[in-house]
């Protein structure tokens, strides 16, 4: 390091006294404490609330953390260097270059996390699928999004996935999540009757969000007739119970109607 560089650095950090160092330590400790408190108590508070309020409260956690960290960095910078434009540009440029080389993906995830906070491709409470992993967003951390899969497994997915992966969001911040129950039936049946029956199966499910539409679509396949019963549950968290209920009751009703499921012999029947 040349004398000139040493002098520049000394000038930059010239007013760094013991008091300033203590202040910085306190700021870091306070920041850590505030973040820990928000991460611990806001989810507990959210658990006491119902419906959308719970989602709003959960969404506050990453936003508050970002605010706290930004505030802390500004406070520290104010104490470490003289807040002139030259100093700031110099410091941040050097910092960015060093960190960028050292941990490109890590920083990329951090930046993607900031972008995710702004663009909101997912929010806490959303049901998303990223690269084949499906689950409910529990928390949005600085570097990762934490989702819980239907098998109760927590998956931490780096935010940088938003740069080049398709993010599938099933409810996109709302309570409305479309569920689909599939029925594969033997082709010899009265399709109109089955359409009405499946519609009523959905209509009479206690899980149904009745204010949303119910749709039944039909497609003829080589092995039989494929019915898709599409409806919305009251709570997205009930989606698997809802599909199960539709399937169980739908099958029972179809059996009572005398409609058989599509099976391999059905193809043989058709061929003969």
């Amino acid at each position: 390091m040349s004398n000139e560089q040493t002098e520049n650095l000394a000038a930059l950090l010239g007013h760094l006294t013991e008091t300033t160092i203590v202040q910085i330590v306190l700021i870091v400790a306070g920041t850590w404490l505030l973040i820990a408190l928000t991460q611990r108590f806001l989810p507990v508070l959210a658990g006491k609330l119902a419906g959308r309020n719970r989602l709003y409260m959960l969404a506050l956690v990453p936003a508050l953390r970002l605010c706290i960290i930004t505030g802390a960095v500004l406070l520290i910078l104010q104490r470490v260097i003289e807040p002139t434009l030259e100093n700031l540009v110099g410091l941040l440029g050097a910092l960015g270059l060093a960190v960028g080389f050292a941990s490109k993906d890590y920083v990329s995830s951090l930046i993607a996390g900031v972008v995710a906070s702004y663009e909101m491709p997912y929010r806490p409470g959303d049901w998303i699928e990223i690269d084949g992993t499906y689950g409910e967003v529990q928390a949005i951390r600085l570097r990762t999004v934490e989702i819980v899969t239907p098998d109760d497994t927590v998956a931490h997915i780096p935010h940088l996935q938003i740069w080049n992966q398709t993010i599938l969001n099933a409810n996109d911040g709302s309570q409305h999540l479309l569920c689909v129950a599939n029925f594969y039936l033997h082709p010899r049946h009265n399709a109109v009757q089955v359409l009405k029956l499946l519609h009523d199966v959905a209509l009479t499910s206690p899980f149904l969000q009745i204010e949303r539409p119910i749709n039944v679509t039909v497609q003829e396949k080589p092995f039989g007739t494929h019915y898709c019963l599409k409806a919305y549950p009251i709570d997205p968290r009930q989606q698997f119970h809802f599909v199960t209920d539709l399937t169980v009751r739908g099958k029972a009703m179809l059996l009572q109607l005398g409609v058989e499921s599509a099976t391999t012999p059905a193809i043989a029947d058709l061929a003969s």
């Binding site: 009479t204 499910s205 206690p206 899980f207 119970h241 199960t244 209920d245 169980v248 009751r249």
Partner: peptide, 25 residues
């Protein structure tokens, strides 16, 4: 589900309540 089903029918017997609710409830 129990409370909602009772309200939608203005009261039900336990037997019919079971018929109308899913297995999980």
């Amino acid at each position: 589900f129990i409370l909602h089903t009772l309200l939608l029918h203005n009261g039900l017997s336990a037997e019919w309540l079971s018929q109308l609710l899913p297995a999980s409830s």
